[in-house]
Design a protein around this nucleic acid. Structure first.
Lengths: 350, 350
DNA sequence: CAAGCTATTGCAAAGGATTGTTGCAAAGGA
DNA sequence: TCCTTTGCAACAATCCTTTGCAATAGCTTG
């Protein structure tokens, strides 16, 4: 009689620890239904505390985790936020820009704290005009953050019209549909220029490419400040990405170095490069030329001499973005935010 | 008889463009089954070319995209790679370290080109010992990349044992299970120290925290090089993250500045800060003190003076990581890769 | 003209979890 | 004692695609 154990037992107990792959396995093991197991794992008060603990212990012991994909499908929530950086193709840019990376870091921190995952996408709008639709409509994310409008304002507006959970790092235009968080770049540019003028510079140069809205606004601010003075301002376009920037900047700067006595750089990185070129030309900073950078990234305080710059509150902006995104996911329509830039005085101005 | 059209027609055509949300909607519209619609959208040769085009046009016109979550569930592939950065809690570190960010940028580029999404996670092992199990076992990713072993070698080994699609940026130990791609940090440290010795320095300092394996290896290399010479080497621990590093570094460096005549920094960022502190102390670089950095990040060429540093081939490593990960996903067991560091001579050595 | 192919398409079963509804007991109240 | 609450679980219906297999139709060939 005890020679042959029942077949079922033989199978299911053939290994002491049999692999628990699905909720159904776990439920069977615990002698409950999958529904109960599911609720137990999600701390639902609908299941008895003792049952719940028993199931959770079982899950832990077997290293079971419910399949998140199936969970996402059923609950129609993914707990994931998409972060997209639109890049320009012709420049073969990649996403290593330190400002973006810093912002991304803070976003990742904030999202993690809120229990969200972060799906990073690098979009090249020139190659795929539907770059944003693709990520918004995929069902893979609960919301989308776009870092930098670049020249994609129209696309973003179009998508935002019927995809609410979308927040953008960048400029706001009156009447725009999408929610944006960004610095008042016009004012920022003006502040920088005015500081240079105050320090006695009259022959300014703006270093940076004005294709994206943000930088264009900064440049406009600079022109504004110079407008009714006897000073003048030169525009030296140069890419944001360091590997391309370095030599282009060097060439252009050397060409105009005799004339320039004040520089507004579109980013701290550009300012840092300018600092180095001027040093190699034997120019004294801030004696011969003043420089103001942009962003106040961490390394701005570590250059020689330490960089005067216009600070954007990156950490605060990241928080603001997440707050707004959560509101939007919750069905609200958050307002855009325009933060005030702050001039950080260090030693490249006099 | 023709007075009342069939109810069905009345409903389904009540709006000319009715929203196509699911494959079933699309199929109904096209008059085919969902299976066929699915195959049409995925370019299956099993469906007639004309039918396929008709369905695809319909999908395009209605802005339809198949739900990726459902697709993932059914096909058991997500097309997503998880990238995890283990952080140390006590330091309240965040992921803005420029080396990580640069590597992340390249990984994002490579993954995008391969049609993968990138899910970024910031893990704090001190808070959650199952940080890696959680992401590997969630079913949300087809593979995992860990950036930096930190002090989590054991955990990584444990998970790698039954989760093959895992590649790590970091050191390799003989006999380890997991596939790692990284620089030969020992040799790198030795190279740096030898260069300083060759330049006439004898009182070296190593700047950086040696908690993580990678940095510890570099330091070991430095000690190695110094071992049989009359030179000696001091260890000044300082955090990697710039906001914490700056003042700690300043304090320690000022304290020992009289003695030190050569510095190996654990990162370019540390080297840059050291450069600034030494400048403020009136020390000449490389005259009084030589400095060698680590990584050769882009900004290393833009410091004043430009930084001599040990290059790690970040772009190449990113490619190597992805290649290996794809191999692992394909069922192979890729070998680890140890790349050779290269000394980049600039102007902080003599 | 029947039989056999081939090219398409439809059918229906996964894939694994969530959740509204229903059912059953035990407990409490009249 | 009977009826109403409560508390706990089970049931079964989704969520939306993918995909193996069956079925059909149209052609070719003997």
């Amino acid at each position: 009689m005890d020679a042959a154990p029942p077949l079922r037992t033989g199978l299911s107990q053939s290994r002491n620890v049999l692999k628990v792959r699905t909720l159904a396995d776990l439920a069977r093991l615990a002698g409950v239904s999958t529904g109960t197991a599911s609720r137990a794992l999600s701390e639902s008060p609908l299941v008895n505390a003792r049952t719940r603990e028993r199931i959770r212990t079982l899950a832990r012991d077997h290293g079971f985790q419910p399949n998140r994909i199936a969970s996402n499908l059923r609950s129609r929530r993914t707990g994931t936020i998409g972060v997209v950086i639109p890049l320009r193709h012709e420049r073969r840019q990649h996403i290593s820009d330190p400002f973006f990376m810093t912002l991304l870091g803070y976003l990742a921190d904030e999202l993690t704290e809120s229990g969200y995952n972060l799906m990073l996408s690098r979009a090249v709008p020139d190659d795929a005009p539907d770059w944003l639709d693709r990520i918004a409509g995929s069902g893979m994310v609960d919301g989308v953050i776009v870092i930098g409008q670049s020249d994609q304002f129209e696309t973003i507006e179009r998508v935002a019209k019927d995809y609410p959970p979308l927040v953008v790092w960048g400029s706001s235009r009156p009447g725009q549909v999408h929610c944006a968080v960004g610095t008042d770049n016009g004012t920022a540019g003006r502040m920088a220029a005015e500081r240079l003028l105050a320090g006695g510079s009259t022959r300014l140069a703006f270093l940076g490419e004005t294709t994206g809205m943000e930088i264009a606004d900064r440049f406009a601010g600079v022109r504004d400040a110079v407008e009714h003075t006897e000073a003048s301002c030169l525009h030296l376009p140069c890419p944001m990405s360091l590997d391309l920037m370095a030599e282009e900047l060097e060439t252009r700067l050397i060409e105009h170095a005799g004339w320039i006595d004040g520089i507004v750089a579109a980013s701290d990185l550009i300012a840092m490069s300018a600092l180095k070129v001027l040093d190699s030309l034997g120019k004294n900073v801030p004696g011969d030329v003043q420089i103001i950078g942009f962003d106040d990234l961490q390394f701005a305080a570590q250059t020689v001499p330490p960089l005067t710059t216009i600070r954007q509150d990156i950490a605060g902006s990241a928080r603001a973005i997440i707050t707004r995104l959560k509101a939007a996911i919750g069905g609200n329509s958050p307002d855009s935010l325009i933060t005030n830039p702050v001039l950080i005085e260090r030693e490249t101005t006099r």
